[in-house]
Design a protein around this nucleic acid. Structure first.
Lengths: 192, 192, 192, 192
DNA sequence: AATTAAACGAGACGGTACGTCTCGTCTTATT
DNA sequence: AATAAGACGAGACGTACCGTCTCGTTTAATT
């Protein structure tokens, strides 16, 4: 048995408005972070009525979640280097993620993403999926000596979680620190 | 050489007001989470003028940071079990932290703390320090076979970070998962 | 030379829709008064698209004007008593008009009509014509000792206007007051 | 027994804000009429927060009522001519009232007042009192040969009501018509 | 019968205004 | 001088309607 969509006449959702909203939200997020993002601001920037936003999204978190999913906010294919040294590659990539800023003088983008995730379940899930994407998982699996399943997942979460925690506590974090982190999680014994 | 306070007349800061504010903030935080916490609400609940808050704190994040520091919000001596099995103890403690809720039907308290930390640097630092306190570090050191220094710190951050990340993405997390996480970070090989 | 309608195919105006709109407007007017009447509400109640309203009327005032004209709103044949005493009959009728309410607990209907008239020229004219109809004018003419023309018109306007003014200032108005009013306008000397 | 105000500290109502609001409301009323008057517009024009308006008034009708009372909207000492002929003076004054316009191309001010009165009980009462003021009543009493009490009141209401009714039905009204109206109400027999 | 075109129900759109809430600052009287 | 109280300008919140503009369907008159 198939679920039939109820036939409905009338105008169809405007793709132009949808895109304008997502792009405006992404731009404002990048400029001022999640806290300073307002629905009114998005509507103004997108040249759209507020009701058009409320018709399709229920909160600013929802909008950001969709913007992440469609790649307006985060380049999910961000370059993961491949030097043959999986641990070094991961450390570099995480360092990069940690220092990611929207604008040269902007707040840390990662922290703003965390704020968004704290406010919206969907954003949390999307963000996690966007970052813990296939290339990262593969490289991490190599670093762990071929781990898969729950252990690989746990390691990935530990890695990303540690970076998030440091972003939240505003600690500086250099490439060496990141290397130590990867080593610990990969179970590499202390270097001499 | 001693630092002399400038002599000055007039009433000094009211300790009663200070405590009333911290307690009101903690209560409201527990009831509605960080997002619904407002300065006006705190002033109302504490029976205090708004200016008295603004005179001594600069944001709601600041208030929460101080409330954490003084233990109004988080019992920093929360029971860390001691069964002799360091890994099991850690897993139990983290599980506890993860499922921490303000009220029976409340939002996850951890998620709300993350929102607070995302909005206030000081809160982030205080929160981290409050959770990664001495008892936890000691037990983790045991689990790691006596690690100290940067490696111990990295492990602690990975552990707490992973829990935070799961809280943010609203995944459920049972005691087994937590055990796997501790194992991976402790470098314990897969169990048969 | 005659004006020819351009030949055109297609459906003609739907009488069912027209009536549904007028009746919905009348019902909503009676329930909530002119101010709370909205085009969207009329469309919803009538089961009609908004455009069908805008196609044929240009404002809610227009709709009300047509509803009055067709008797959906005001029974223009409202009973004007005939006791032989023209002044008493007029006083009774005006009293009736003044206290007219849509629903038992409703606002004064007269006041709502005035609001409608203030907002729409056509409604003003229609309303005036609907109230100052032939039966009233005849009885008033008798009360004035056979006046006609401008003096009769002036008297009629004075009578209705006074009632409206009292409705606007929310004064109570009993049958005696109404009698005095008719007497003054009819030029009857003060009663002993 | 006296009603004591509760002793209260804190700032007192700003007279500057109060006046700015009344003046802005009066200006906007004169420019666009009651229907186009908005609270947001008043706040903008007065340079005042919306909450400052809502704190002290509950509707735009309320504001207009106060503006009338304080003479921001209607010069209650409008010149009532004194030529010795009371009926002619009244006719002239009413004609003046009827043709009163806010701006050269504005809507009739009287009609807008009626809309305001229809929407707000207090405005209705204030407006009535402002127009049916002592000078008018005295002159009317003369025209009626010394009438007082209910009969004078009824005559006054009939007079003003008739003018309002004509304003509502957008009929033109010249000085002759106005004379006839005064004559009918004054009980003067038809002129030859 | 097939074509054509307008009226229809539905409702999305860019807007304006609503009335409420909170922000951070400022003012007052009290302690 | 610090406090409780709270008015102030500012502006975001989410909702209700505005009047216009599609949509896809239905209904007549014309081919």
């Amino acid at each position: 048995m198939s679920v039939m969509a109820l036939p409905r006449s009338g105008p169809v959702r405007s793709e132009a408005a949808r895109l304008a909203i997502l792009e405006a939200a992404a731009a404002l997020f990048a400029e001022g972070g999640y806290d300073h993002l307002t629905i009114e601001g998005v509507a103004r920037r997108a040249g759209v009525g507020k009701q058009t936003i409320y018709r399709w999204w229920s909160s600013k978190g929802d909008i950001i979640a969709e913007a992440i999913l469609e790649g307006h906010l985060l380049d999910t294919r961000r370059h993961l280097p491949d030097t043959g040294d999986a641990r070094a590659d991961l450390a570099a990539w995480l360092s990069d993620l940690f220092t990611l800023r929207a604008s040269p003088d902007g707040e840390g983008l990662l922290r703003s993403f965390v704020a968004a995730a704290a406010g919206s379940a969907e954003t949390g899930r999307r963000l996690r999926a966007a970052i813990l994407a296939a290339p990262l998982m593969e490289r991490l699996s190599q670093a762990l000596g071929g781990a898969t399943g729950p252990r690989l997942e746990a390691a990935a979460e530990a890695l990303l979680g540690a970076v998030i925690l440091r972003a939240l506590s505003r600690e500086d974090f250099d490439a060496d620190d990141m290397g130590t982190l990867v080593d610990v999680i990969a179970g590499v014994p202390p270097r001499a």
